[in-house]
């Protein structure tokens, strides 16, 4: 580990918890890095850990969707017309057709396995949320650091740009953009194009939120003693940026990206709900909800995708909250 980080590490160790925690362990008191302290705190936060476990579970579900549906369900786009009452288009059996073959029942009209569709929906939802978050974190961090570190005109332009982005009626704009993009563009088509497009739209419009935070942090870090010290020792721009400032931004970046993921899950669901997301028949939670609007008399149809969105967002929020408490000793709980 590099020296500058140790500097900040020692600074943090002044916080009483670090000592108490050390005392809690049987081993002798020794210096702990920021990461170790955070991990200790996080482990004690049962709610956050529950969130984390659910998130891991979700990721596994998304990755192994074909295996899971192979064992417990049917292919997500397969019709089961025999499960449907043709007159009302609703499931023939009561309780939405829930039984051991169809764990969540069947979709009205075509009798598709709701369980499989919810499972596959996790893929789209997480994929887009993760990549969109990565995109906005990268843009936000780079521009935030540049603005905060260089100041002056650079800061002025980037800050104005952030203001413009924040002034955009985001959802309206995203819908407009998702609506006018043709079916085949940039050498891509079908689901791939839509996913890339959504990642781009969501990521591109959320960067200013993270950018502002990073800019603020950089501004204050720039004036800190250890940066001054490095500078007086002859360190130059890039060194200070990458070795002194960036490592100190890891914590806020980690916290805000964890908290941005659930927002992006909601964003993707909203776009799919409004019909500008992924195209059918690919299953998405938002898209299923928007289909369920017309079938509110079969409540299981809206319940499962709705709960899937809710639990996913909740889990990320719980984990994100815990992470913030663990990483940021000043935050109070």
């Amino acid at each position: 580990m590099t020296a500058p980080l140790d500097v900040s590490g020692t600074e943090l160790q002044a916080a009483p918890e670090a000592v108490v925690e050390g005392a809690g362990g049987a081993k002798a008191i020794q210096g702990r890095s920021l990461g170790q302290i955070a991990w200790m705190r996080l482990k004690r936060d049962k709610v956050a850990m529950a969130g984390a476990i659910f998130v891991i579970f979700l990721i596994l579900v998304a990755i192994f969707a074909p295996v899971i549906t192979g064992l417990l369900g049917h292919p997500p786009n397969e019709f089961h017309q025999d499960m449907i009452n043709p007159e009302t288009m609703g499931p023939k059996a009561s309780w939405g057709g829930i039984n051991k073959d169809f764990l969540f029942g069947v979709e009205p009209v075509n009798g598709r396995d709701l369980f499989s569709r919810v499972v596959y929906g996790a893929r789209i939802s997480l994929l887009i949320a993760f990549f969109a978050t990565m995109l906005s974190v990268v843009i936000g961090t780079v521009l935030g650091v540049v603005a905060g570190y260089f100041g002056g005109w650079t800061d002025m332009i980037i800050s104005r740009a952030m203001d413009v982005f924040l002034a955009f009626p985001l959802l309206v704009f995203a819908i407009a953009l998702a609506g006018v993009i043709p079916d085949k563009a940039f050498g891509l088509e079908g689901d791939t194009l839509r996913i890339v497009l959504l990642v781009f739209i969501i990521g591109f419009f959320s960067w200013p939120y993270i950018g502002r935070i990073i800019r603020g942090q950089t501004l204050s870090l720039r004036e800190r003693e250890f940066v001054d010290a490095a500078r007086s020792l002859g360190a130059r721009g890039p060194y200070i940026l990458f070795r002194e400032i960036l490592p100190n931004l890891v914590a806020p970046i980690l916290i805000y990206s964890t908290l941005l993921i659930p927002t992006n899950v909601l964003f993707e669901a909203a776009l799919s709900f409004l019909g500008v997301g992924i195209r059918p028949p690919t299953a998405t939670w938002g898209g299923m909800l928007s289909d369920a609007v017309h079938f509110y008399t079969v409540p299981h149809f809206m319940f499962f995708p709705g709960m899937a969105i809710f639990l996913t967002v909740l889990a990320f929020n719980l984990f994100g909250d815990g992470l913030r408490d663990a990483l940021d000793p000043r935050s109070s709980r």
Binding site: L266, L289, V293, Y296, G306, I309, V313, L314, L318, D321
Partner: peptide, 23 residues
Amino acid sequence: ALAGVSLPIFFTGLVSLVVFSYG
């Protein structure tokens, strides 16, 4: 509150419409 920020409005809206208005 945490549950509140985790619920999409088109889901809560739909549920409230079904329960309180249509249903």
